[in-house]
Amino acid sequence: MKLTIHVTLKPGVLDPQGKAIEHALSGLGFSGVHGARVGKLIELDVDEGTSDADVEAMCRKLLANTVIENYRIARA
């Protein structure tokens, strides 16, 4: 079973990489860009029937640092 985990910075957490991307885009002449945030996409291949609780635990215990990041689980 394939899962996709989206890990994103919490709102309000400053993202220097996103800022750099935003500036680089405007440097390329894309004037309409008002923000960029960088996150991670993690693809997991897990046993069929892996419980939602287990996947949640994987996210909380390792895949995301919930001090600064949110996560979203999508089943492919």
């Binding site: 957490v13 400053l14 220097p16 990489q17 750099a20 640092n65 001090v67 600064i68």
Partner: peptide, 17 residues
């Protein structure tokens, strides 16, 4: 230590990159 939960907060990429 922050990742292990022994200290609060987190250490992110330097502001100047």
């Amino acid at each position: 230590l922050t990742e292990a939960g022994l200290l609060p907060g987190a250490l992110m990429r330097n502001a100047g990159l």
